[in-house]
Design a protein around this nucleic acid. Structure first.
Lengths: 297, 297
DNA sequence: TAAAATCGATCACTTTGAATGATAGCGGAG
DNA sequence: CTCCGCTATCATTCAAAGTGATCGATTTTA
């Protein structure tokens, strides 16, 4: 069984047609037909039902499909493992929460880029849920997310320990005051953000319920919105420290168990770990390891 | 990267030479040379050091080698998954302890062969250690071994619960008598047998140490040897019940915690589970499930 | 020390089969 | 009922996989 045939098979299955697959694969339809038939003859099993609108997977085809992508991935890993001589190089695609990127990763990335100029770094941001999906779907090699995460296919490691604080407009004395301002909104970065649920739990525990939500695309816009008295937010302390020093917002400490948020690095258990990723993790551990040990005490 | 190239690469690496690989692969040496070079050019990395006695893997080659076999296995799994329509058929290769085969598997296998005539069954016997290696090395799809087994790449399931008994010649009244017979030998099936270590522990706990060992190839020969007064053995009760009923040996019960031995079925966590294997396990669970539930109470 | 054996690289040649482009046939949509 | 999009088929082209012979280098054997 040829890996090239499987690649064609995967494309046909995904696009639901041989002609469509042919144009995607930059070849001609007759060739796709021949290769698919070749695969079917080799397995002595039809993989597609042909009809006038295209093709549909048979039961055998459905069973084969996951292997087609698995083989492609394994071959890709094989190539990378052979080429990877321990010197970080090539493409390194990581995912991260917006807040982690701002607070933790920017200094790291600068150091890393300086130390390993042969690496092309790509950073994608998203919510914890999106990032987990991205890791599982092989779209990123690993990601920084908000813990806890337990998944049978994922390895995880605590890399940073954040102290979350509630940020409000300066005139708010304490969290108790919030109950008097029913106009307030919960200001968060994106739908599905881990901190949103966290903040709503914290407020609920203090008898504040039913607040509206406001979503923004950047941390700066959130801080601005909070400073203007429109709402309340929950963020790692380091992210809002500058705004607090300027007096634009005030920070309200939480009990340690409410405030603690672990930032995990997650990656797939299987698959190849590039030297580029290894070097990045080593740098992250070296940079933040002491702080983590201190926080653990 | 082509799977066929990887197959040739693997053969060259294993045999340490292109000519040797060529004859194994039923092709000519020049072709092997060309394909290897093709692979090296594709990866832009030398995979072998050439010298007059053959070739040796480079570091890159060593990194690539495990992927070569992984790809071959995955392609094989893919074929089997596509062809397997839920009806057990094809080749089913299992491993088992000798005692388990005799006591448990023979009735199962008869039923199974009758129910699924399209399956070609192969049963290999060995010690627990050998069987674990066989499962890990993809030489058998799964195996019945003596528990406990904990391995990150293996799934296990308790299928039978054996009651072990010590068997001796009829004139021996109790285990205490054995201390008076320093000539006695520990009679076991094979080197590395799980029950051997177990029996020696049991005897040691009763102050009987330093017994010589005797190994035999079949259970019948062990029983015969014990009946003749040459030695003492430890086996599942069911295996020696007929000989005990005939008065050839006597059985000495052990405390429940000493007597209990779980027979596990182990298989790799990854990889494809054929319908033939699924059907076999279903039959085994159905046949022995009640007994197991009763033993668990 | 010379001859024989073994091994990999190279090259001209053959053969396989992948890819192409054109055409035919099928079935649903307008 | 005709057009449109799809797949099947086929003759043709062409790249590359495979073959067999030869060379040079090195080791083993006599």
């Amino acid at each position: 069984m040829d890996a090239a045939d499987l690649r064609i098979f995967e494309s046909v299955a995904r696009l639901g047609g041989m002609s469509r697959a042919a144009s995607e694969l930059n070849t001609v339809q007759s060739n796709v037909t021949t290769r698919v038939r070749h695969l079917e003859e080799e397995l002595a099993t039809p993989l597609f039902q042909r009809h006038s609108r295209g093709v549909t997977l048979t039961a055998a085809g459905r069973r084969l499909l996951p292997y087609a992508s698995a083989v492609a991935r394994l071959l890709d890993d094989a190539r990378r493992a052979a080429v990877d001589d321990g010197t970080p190089k090539g493409l390194l695609t990581l995912g991260s929460l917006e807040t982690t990127a701002a607070l933790r990763l920017s200094p790291l990335l600068a150091d890393y880029a300086a130390a390993h100029p042969a690496v092309d770094l790509v950073l994608r941001t998203g919510t914890t849920g999106e990032l987990i999906e991205a890791v599982l779907g092989h779209r990123v090699e690993g990601a920084f997310v908000c813990g806890p995460v337990e998944h049978p296919e994922l390895d995880h490691e605590v890399l940073f320990r954040e102290q979350l604080v509630v940020a409000t407009a300066p005139q708010v004395r304490g969290l108790g005051d919030l109950a008097d301002q029913p106009e307030l909104k919960v200001v968060v970065l994106r739908a599905g953000c881990s901190y949103r649920q966290r903040l709503e739990e914290i407020l609920t525990r203090r008898g504040i319920v039913g607040l509206r939500r406001l979503e923004f695309g950047t941390i700066d816009s959130i801080v601005g919105c909070v400073a203007a008295g429109l709402g309340v937010t929950l963020l790692p302390r380091g992210v809002v420290t500058p705004a607090a020093r300027d007096g634009r917002v005030v920070l309200h400490d939480l009990a340690p168990e409410e405030a603690r948020a672990d930032t995990l690095f997650i990656r797939r258990k299987d698959g190849f770990v590039s030297s580029a990723l290894n070097a990045f993790l080593a740098l992250a551990r070296r940079t933040y390891g002491q702080e983590l040990a201190a926080a653990a005490e």
